[in-house]
Design a protein around this nucleic acid. Structure first.
Lengths: 108, 108
DNA sequence: TGCGTATATGCCAATATTAACATATTGTCA
DNA sequence: TGACAATATGTTAATATTGGCATATACGCA
């Protein structure tokens, strides 16, 4: 892997590395939603949700579509959800390792 | 998914979302290495590599082992590498989507 | 046209992240 | 013990990220 590849990957991870943006991605995983619906569901202020949506849109993680006064957002890269479950795996693996270590200490 | 789960996941992603740390993880993917080896390979300053290693160690992504003057680091969660390839998938999927869009525009 | 609703954006302050440098720590060996 | 090699840590300044608030924009409808 080249330095540019690491840098690109780091940029992508930074986009995903935010509580609100993760909630948005997860919420859009199998259906499009309006901003209001996301605001209601996630519980952050409207302007905050909008800003995170802008960032995700600028980076082509989501796409928007206007319908009257509402703007619907959908996930462009369903793979992003698989990616999140992959992150969950890493956390589980970490946890298991820690438990193993703790058990070893107790056995001494 | 609960808010705490999103927050935990975001924390993990933040740890991984750095060019140097990605290079370290990738470099350790199938063999342990000393700090000097990582410095040589990655090309950042020693204190910088050390600090990133500390962060990874504190978060149980890597573990260290002293052997004389050298300290060997190894990856604790091999899953982290799979995770990175998963990130690469997301980027590829994004790119493919964009190409598709561009082609559609040209066909009009 | 004017008003209400939905959404986006600009600005600012607080906080987090990072690199760079200097210095400290820990071990080896003479 | 002293000098050196490998690594870690403290401090600081620059920059990036974030949330909160105010305001702007876009649309529908009367």
């Amino acid at each position: 892997m080249s330095q540019k590849e690491f840098s690109d990957q780091a940029k992508l991870l930074k986009i995903l590395a935010n509580e609100v943006r993760l909630a948005i991605i997860y919420s859009l995983k199998d259906t499009e939603k309006t901003v209001s619906e996301l605001v209601e569901e996630i519980g952050s202020e409207q302007s905050i949700i909008s800003k995170h949506l802008s960032l995700l849109r600028l980076n082509n993680i989501v796409a928007d579509r206007r319908e009257g006064n509402n703007i619907y957002y959908k996930l462009l890269t369903p793979c992003a959800v698989k990616f999140l479950s992959c992150a969950t795996d890493v956390m589980r693996e970490k946890k298991e390792y820690l438990l193993k270590i703790i058990n070893q200490k107790h056995q001494r």
